[in-house]
Design a protein around this nucleic acid. Structure first.
Length: 919
RNA sequence: GGGCGGAUAGCUCAGUUGGGAGAGCGCUGCCCUUACAAGGCAGAGGUCACAGGUUCGAUCCCUGUUCCGCCUACCA
């Protein structure tokens, strides 16, 4: 027993003074370090790695708080806990950050060259990449920082290479020329899910395409992107469309060019109901048209460069744009080209009409630039063979998605999944482990006219290798060029649960902590990340990467808007922690984490839980005044009533919190903790035991002090995962064993503490006190004034219990109590209030206004009557009594009986009151 | 276009085998009562979005409607 001296605590809790100090101690003592020799059953979580350029936003705060609650809880339960932290290298975002820095120095990525640029990024990472890590520590996160990982670390990079090579060898990675989503600002390919769609009001242009054989006749073609017509290589109509099918096989003159293009039939592409029923086909600039082009063996004519501007040479030589309009169009960016084409067509009277049209516009998720479907050579993962086992793992329950409702979402996406474009035309990231031999490539490597990168054509044979090969295996030449592209950041994140544990080595960590127990994440990266981890985990470890996936809500502002810097509605968690304390923020987020609903975070809520922290603090100050001396042992059943009651309630709270945490109901667990402490422990228990504590000679003094500090200490442990700082601070000042609350056992329910009779007794007691207090207010008695109170219960047994509680009733009711039957009460000058069998009488002093009391009685009688009628009506229904379950019927009968007893007491009370008023 | 979620007190939200509608904040009144005014006590406030259906009985289950949000999609 480590008996501390009673400290003097300030009246209000000051989180700042406490938080940094304890985090320092926890770190130094290594409480968060996972040990392979720990005897407990492993419990492991890998953190969703935040972007290394990032700083802690409120979404992280939620995500991390929930993980820390789970981890601290399991650690206290004695599990062998690993919470593995880290960051990802965020290829595009990080490169953007460093490039911006270079611009201010008058330099650029290109001027530095690839090697020096990458060095520069590492430098940046060394100085700025730990921002979020230190912020995570401020949040109190109990990660094993000794195992901090970064997706570009040597070990993780090794895993990336290993996976790439093995996927290639298994035929699951291929290189091909496809249409991909291209960001003309980041100058790289994006995967499908890196494109955000936004509804915009655009225009639908209807253009006349004159028939080649008879230019006075024309086909009407509708499009939202008229500028792409320069790259058209066909027009499609529906084969069964009587308006057009006779034209199939003929040709049209493509306006603004010197080309004619065929009219083809295509039942897949053409919707006869839409637009004019004829569709232009631009295979190099539209995803549907690309497929249609494949079906009809059409040319693909590119008209744009990597910046999404119309390229003069492409227009001139490939698209054969008419030389009269060429100067107007060459070099224009897409948006301007659209206007110009509209104008030109209009002047040539080839523009039939322009209508308003709403459409979805794809934007880059990093920089919000409009993305272009762009024809280029890229690397892809063939995803279907990986998706199938990943679907199965969720179907057969090896992976559980919580809340379950997201399972459908996952399944739907997985079943309809498309090949994953994994190459990115940037420098920061894992460079693709593929080399090419110039000697063996017939066309050699070209330099693009529009890009400084070497263009490696599809005729080049890739040499896939974990390390750079010495020489070409075919010709022996040593002049090999590595593929300039890097892999999608999500490619390395997909390996996170096992690459961080040492894979491809079979490390002890991997054996102990894989599969991980739980993944905690937001819905926004279910597809980006979760699905891909499942696919990769199954493929490369043969097992799922985690058992449970807990998906939490998105945090929005108080108006329900998504937080964004541009809207200026972001709540900065660091500022909140500064203002209200970390524990308050954590508790707020936990208490609002109801499944399937977004969190609207308002500052008032956080303030409310700041007040809760202060309440806890003051509860501790109170407890400190009455710490026990020597240890007092007393079996629960022999404890005085307040102790028996609070122990039973605490026991129930332990049960609830544990059950709810098991079900990932952080909100309910938090509410149970709050409700217990504030509204049972402080409001009732502390008040009940004050007379005992304050009387040095009281026979229950010693065991009550003991119960007070024991229950407080247990509750602190119960709360600790939610509010780690304040619980440690207070726990240290109470008698305790051990060095830190962090590693103390989590409370478990004890059946000996459960006491139904104490809880029933409390029910009658609480009702009595409630009536006394209400009566006081009705009669305008000052709170301090002691009054004469009669109290009884219609059930004799309960009445007898109330007799035993006379002291407690007197104390909390501030009254002289007469616990006698109503027959012994005065018939006048007493206000009688009734509820649930309890009747309380307050003696009425002369001169008080009784009208308020009368109003209340009248209202209560009316309510009683209404409810009685409702119950009576049901009980008189033959359908009800014949079909409802017996226990429901007896319950209704009991309630009706209780109401009518109350009602009799109420009316007699009303009559007395009227008599008093009349007098 | 498809899918999913939501609509309960002024606000934010609980309410899971269908049987008496709850919490927090806010509001009103009274109190600086020796842990706490970041507090205590008492109180007001809801046809559980709307319309049908199932049932003895529906906030809860089913159908439809309206509104809001999210995800997803190639209607040029």
């Amino acid at each position: 027993m480590n008996q501390m001296t009673t400290p003097q605590l300030d009246k209000t809790y000051d989180p700042k003074a406490v938080e940094a100090r304890w985090y320092e101690v926890w770190s130094q003592k290594g409480y968060f370090h996972a040990s392979l020799t720990h005897p407990g059953q492993p419990y492991s979580i890998v953190i969703p790695p935040p972007n290394v350029t990032g700083s802690l936003h409120v979404g992280h705060a939620l995500n991390h708080s929930l993980q820390d609650i789970l981890v601290r809880w399991r650690r206290m339960q004695g599990r062998n806990v690993l919470w593995l932290p880290g960051t990802d290298h965020a290829g595009i975002a990080t490169q953007n950050v460093v490039e911006k820095q270079l611009v201010t120095e008058g330099a650029s990525r290109e001027s530095l060259g690839r090697e020096r640029f990458i060095e520069r990024v590492w430098q940046w990472k060394a100085t700025s990449g730990n921002t979020i890590i230190s912020q995570q520590k401020q949040l109190g996160e109990s990660c094993d920082w000794d195992r901090l990982r970064f997706t570009m670390d040597e070990g993780l990079s090794k895993a990336v290479i290993e996976v790439f090579v093995r996927l290639y060898e298994d035929g699951l990675i291929y290189r091909g020329e496809r249409l991909i989503n291209w960001c003309p600002r980041c100058l790289t390919a994006l995967s499908d899910i890196e494109v955000e769609h936004e509804d915009v009001k655009g225009k639908l242009y209807t253009i006349r395409y004159p028939l080649a054989d008879n230019p006075t006749q024309y086909l009407l073609v509708a499009t939202t992107r008229p500028e792409t017509m320069l790259g058209d290589t066909a027009v499609a109509v529906h084969p069964e469309d009587p308006r057009y099918n006779r034209f199939i096989g003929q040709r049209v003159n493509l306006p603004l060019t010197n080309r004619t293009i065929p009219i083809v039939d295509d039942a897949i592409l053409v919707d006869r109901e839409f637009g004019s029923g004829a569709v232009k086909i631009t295979p190099a600039h539209d995803f549907n048209d690309f497929d249609a082009g494949e079906r009809h063996g059409l040319h693909r004519i590119k008209i744009m460069d990597i910046h999404a501007t119309l390229a003069a040479d492409m227009l001139q030589y490939d698209a054969r744009v008419d030389k009269n309009v060429l100067p107007f169009l060459a070099g224009l960016p897409v948006a301007k080209a659209r206007l110009k084409v509209e104008q030109l067509l209009s002047e040539m009277e080839l523009l039939e009409k322009v209508e308003h049209h709403k459409m979805a516009l794809g934007k880059c998720y990093r920089c919000k630039t409009v993305v272009e479907p762009y024809l280029s050579i890229q690397w892809f993962v063939k995803i279907k063979p990986l998706a199938e086992p990943a679907i199965k793992a969720v179907e057969d329950g090896r992976i559980r998605i919580i809340p379950e409702s997201w399972t459908n979402n996952y399944m739907g996406w997985m079943r309809d999944i498309k090949d994953w474009c994994i190459s990115r035309q940037i420098w920061w990231g894992h460079q693709i482990p593929v080399w090419y031999c110039a000697q063996c490539t017939p066309g050699g490597f070209l330099k693009s006219k529009h890009d400084e990168r070497p263009l490696i054509g599809l005729d080049a044979t890739p040499i896939i290798a974990k390390l750079k090969p010495e020489k070409c295996p075919k010709c022996g030449d040593t002049n090999l060029v590595q593929d300039p592209d890097v892999l999608d950041t999500w490619f390395s994140s997909a390996l996170w649960p096992f690459s961080t544990l040492g894979w491809p080595e079979q490390t002890p960590e991997l054996k102990t902590y894989y599969p991980t127990s739980t993944l905690v994440t937001g819905l926004d990266i279910l597809f980006f990340w979760v699905a891909r981890m499942i696919m990769m985990g199954l493929k490369f470890t043969g097992d799922v990467p985690f058992r449970d996936v807990y998906i939490h809500a998105l945090v929005r502002d108080a108006e329900g808007q998504k937080m964004s810097k541009s809207k200026g509605n972001v709540i900065d968690p660091l500022h909140v922690m500064e203002q209200f304390g970390t524990d308050a923020l954590r508790f707020t987020l936990a208490s609002m984490a109801s499944p399937g609903r977004d969190i609207k975070l308002a500052e008032e809520r956080i303030e409310g839980y700041r007040n809760f922290a202060n309440k806890i603090w003051n509860g501790a100050r109170f407890t400190h005044m009455y710490l026990a001396g020597t240890k007092e042992l007393c079996p629960p059943a022999e404890q005085p009533f307040p102790n028996r009651w609070i122990m039973s309630r605490l026991n129930q709270t332990i049960q609830t919190v544990t059950t709810e945490l098991d079900a990932y109901r952080f909100d309910r667990a938090a509410n149970a903790l709050y409700q217990f402490f504030w509204h049972e422990y402080c409001d009732w228990y502390l008040e009940l035991i004050k007379p005992v504590l304050q009387d040095p000679a009281h026979p229950h003094g010693a065991i009550t002090r003991q119960a007070l500090q024991d229950t407080f200490e247990i509750w602190l442990r119960l709360l600790h995962p939610f509010m780690p700082f304040i619980t440690e601070e207070i726990w240290q000042t109470l008698p305790h064993t051990g060095d830190t609350i962090v590693t103390q056992p989590y409370p478990i329910p004890l059946s000996a503490w459960h006491d139904a009779s104490a809880e029933n007794t409390f029910g009658a007691f609480e009702q009595s006190i409630g009536l006394i207090r209400t009566a006081r207010v009705l009669l305008n008695y000052p709170p301090g004034q002691e009054v004469r109170v009669f109290v009884t219960h219609e059930d004799p047994a309960t009445s007898a219990i109330l007799v035993t509680l006379e002291q407690d009733l007197a104390h909390l009711g501030r009254a002289r109590i007469s616990p006698v039957p109503t027959s012994q009460w005065p018939t006048s000058n007493v206000l009688r209030l009734v509820t649930g069998g309890v009747t309380v009488g307050l003696s009425v002093e002369g001169g008080v206004d009784l009208q308020k009391a009368l109003d209340r009685l009248v209202k209560q009688i009316a309510e009683t009557d209404k409810e009685s009628q409702r119950l009576d009506g049901k009980l008189k229904s033959t359908d009800f009594v014949s079909k409802a379950p017996p226990e429901v019927i007896t319950d209704h009968q009991d309630r009706l009986r209780a109401l009518s007893r109350d009602r009799a007491m109420l009316t007699s009370s009303e009559q007395q009151l009227r008599a008093m008023l009349g007098a």
